[in-house]
Amino acid sequence: MVEIDAAGRTTREVNRAIRQRIAESCKEVVLRNPGARHNLAVAILEDAHIRIAGSAGYYCGGLIDGPSIEVEGSAGWGLAESMLSGTVRVHGSAGSGAAAAVRGGTVVIHGDAAARLGVSMKGGIVIVAGNCGYMAGFMAQKGTLIVCGNAGEAFADSMYATVCYVGGEIANLGTDAVIAPIDAGEAQQLEKILSTHLPATLRSTKPAAADFKKVVAGRKLWNFDKREWRTWQEAL
């Protein structure tokens, strides 16, 4: 394990230092004094553990392919945006646009997520232990979006094939989002995901897998049909 002190360094210098340590075969890097700075640990393509000892600003862990990133504080906008693979874990809360357009990997947020969680996600698993805000899952295409607490307005609006699970209340569903029954096999799979990725103490305070609501696309927006003009008016 090596430590890098972000204090007094530019963000570019910090990210270069992280890459350099990983290139030197270091498997764990701890970043001290991150100060909620933007663009920390972006575009890391190697398998390493990067622990940010504090809060991160915007775009933390964006475009990564492989590493596991842990933020001990909270994260700002665009957490793990467009990541390909790896794990991003935030102990606090995440800002708007967390896990937007992720293609794979796992994003775990122990606190709440703000607006536009997992919009346009194309794969991977996104788990929020707390609540999520407005328009989560908008136009999401593949992957799994799990919110253990309550979901904000316009949840799962205009989705493709992402499957969402919500443990608490949904303020309201977005256009073409529907609640689907959750069968025993799915509940088992959901429980496995939750117990794998959430710490036991956190998992124990959340609903049982079978009590989650499953939300999927009603598929009415997948193909244009002028007889459903009203639905389209609402969607656009």
Partner: peptide, 14 residues
Amino acid sequence: NAIPGDFTVREAQA
């Protein structure tokens, strides 16, 4: 930048 110490920060919702 302005306040030292250990406290949590979260984004306001819509």
